[in-house]
Design a protein around this nucleic acid. Sequence first.
DNA 1: CATCCAATGCAACAAGAAGTTGTATTAACG
DNA 2: CGTTAATACAACTTCTTGTTGCATTGGATG
Lengths: 205, 205
Amino acid sequence: MDEMKRPGGRTRRVREAVFAASLAELADVGWGSLSVERIADRSGVHKTTIYRRWGTADQVVLEALLERGSAKIPVPDTGDVTRDMIALGQLIAANISAPIGRSIAAAAIEAADSSSIRQIADAFWSERFEQAGIIVGRAIERGQLPGGTESTDLVETVAARIWFRVMVNRLPVSDPWLSEVVDSAVEAVRIPNSIGAEISEILSS
Amino acid sequence: MDEMKRPGGRTRRVREAVFAASLAELADVGWGSLSVERIADRSGVHKTTIYRRWGTADQVVLEALLERGSAKIPVPDTGDVTRDMIALGQLIAANISAPIGRSIAAAAIEAADSSSIRQIADAFWSERFEQAGIIVGRAIERGQLPGGTESTDLVETVAARIWFRVMVNRLPVSDPWLSEVVDSAVEAVRIPNSIGAEISEILSS
DNA sequence: CATCCAATGCAACAAGAAGTTGTATTAACG
DNA sequence: CGTTAATACAACTTCTTGTTGCATTGGATG
């Protein structure tokens, strides 16, 4: 797939310039308004080159994102579930707050069919869910969480609230806010529903 | 704004045909790919008519949405917070699951500036928040919730989880799932954080 | 360093969409 | 019925998109 007979100097420079320009465009105008011509102008690379090497603007951005996303991020490990989840939350917030992340999210939402853009978004989330699984696993080993705790519930709650705040409310994810959200999410999984209901029953009587 | 010298037969028919076509287009191709020509073809109305009456495709869809969104929805009132919130959640889910709602959401997310599309999305959410305020107010009067309960926390939690499930996970909002989400959200606001933390402290020791 | 040829640049073009304008036609309203 | 607002139609310009043939550049190779 990535074989080229001359990967050296110029080809590499062109490739990098085009990728940089395409991501900048993505951040500026969004996935829907991408065009080969704009990327060509912005990168200084002639449009015929882009048409011949990639064909469409989508393909360019796709490759750029794949190359960019290949950097693996270590799972937070502070010795405490809450702090781990806060770190994970900050990571998620940083990603979807940036213009590029926002554009990807918007495009992934709009794409009704399972297009290539959705694969990237899906990959992002499955990675987060996997990380959360590790975090929860460690917490169970430490005895901070009960044995059968479902990690997906925890991430979903936290991720959902971050997502909503950034995308809909358009407010920044501050540390105090995130801390509170994570706290209540961790409590929710720590106290099984039945017991929680029982307690609230007692309290309200 | 809405004055016209001949609001009768033909003008009305044209208006309705154009609005219907524009919303259908919005659902099909999304906000970003709207075009006057497509709406013209789809509605059977000549494009010059649309250009002269509305100017741009955005304006057409905007008016269509405003007219459509003017129908007021009554606040659920079942006598129980949880059931009220579930009803509200179902309403939210129905709205953002439909193709049109999805397109609006995607467009609102992508629009970095505060464009007209964002006003529609904002209006939708502020209405939900207002409804939740009424629901919570009633619950406080009934003694189901403590006096100072912030309604925004409750809606935000529920709305966020629905949003995430529909937009990111792309799963349907089933009644059992929604019920569980609302339950835990109501519990979270019913048990103040400090007490909740204390209890979990006791339980884990 | 000399040579080759893949990669890129360049210019001209075709195809189509977007928007405008002048005029003819239709039908709502009195 | 007559008036004229509202719409349809056709022709046109302009802009964007994508293609093609050819010239030029500069890695790679011996």
